[in-house]
Computed example of a mutant assay.
Amino acid sequence: MDIVVFGASGRVGSAIVEEALRRKHDVTAAVRRPEAFAIQHERLQVVAADVLDPASVAAAVRGHGEVISAFGPAAGQENDLLKAAESLLEGLRTAGVERLIVVGGAGSLKTESGEWLMDTAGFPESFRALAAAHAHAYEIYSGSELDYTYLSPPSALIAGRRTGQFRIGLDRLIVDEDGRSSISIEDFAVAVVDELEEGNFSRARFTVGY
């Protein structure tokens, strides 16, 4: 496959790039500063692109088959998250690209109590606005005609190792027998590329966790 990855310079995005290359896909990393991108590979191309600019998105994805967005702004940059959602949809439409996988947020996953995670008592207040923006972005993607998939992570994405072993769910937060909700960044990248190859969640959301 010929894949474009936005947000490729972040922890999750770079892991996705490495996983896709591991599986012998051709990858284009669309980043703001190509000269600072650390990964090098014979099947990797690095291009300058701004995920907040629809014209820049269209230029980066034109002629490619699938797009992955791992764009994840920090707390306080919620407007950028929503702007990126609109920009990606417009840019992909302009370029005639139909397939998009989005790394989203966990806040709108349901917990055992039936509440959204971001509405539970223990959810950090400093991340509540960002979680709400992720939930809004999901509505933007799901309201489009694009062949999207929205992948919500568990509560914690941790540095670890690639095992290829994890559980898959839909709208409910996955927790282990000790009540923890986590997955390694490496295994999260496996889940992203699995979906790219298998397409089990077209026009849907899913989540993963141990």
Results as ranks from 00 to 15, higher is better:
91 G>K: 00
121 A>K: 15
105 G>V: 06
88 L>Q: 08
80 D>E: 14
54 P>E: 04
116 W>S: 14
90 E>S: 13
127 F>D: 02
70 A>N: 05
107 G>K: 10
135 A>G: 15
118 M>Q: 00
67 V>I: 13
136 H>F: 03
129 A>N: 13
64 H>D: 07
124 P>F: 03
98 E>C: 04
128 R>H: 06
134 H>A: 10
100 L>N: 05
69 S>W: 02
58 A>F: 07
108 S>L: 05
118 M>G: 00
109 L>N: 01
82 L>A: 04
60 A>I: 08
96 G>F: 03
107 G>H: 09
106 A>W: 05
69 S>C: 04
66 E>P: 00
130 L>H: 04
93 R>D: 08
124 P>E: 03
76 G>I: 10
119 D>H: 02
98 E>M: 06
121 A>G: 06
112 E>V: 13
81 L>V: 15
52 L>Y: 07
133 A>W: 08
103 V>M: 04
57 V>P: 06
58 A>P: 00
108 S>D: 15
121 A>R: 13
132 A>F: 01
102 V>T: 02
86 E>Y: 07
53 D>M: 03
90 E>H: 07
133 A>C: 10
77 Q>T: 03
129 A>D: 15
123 F>M: 09
48 A>L: 01
126 S>L: 10
66 E>N: 05
91 G>I: 03
104 G>F: 01
87 S>H: 06
78 E>L: 14
83 K>P: 03
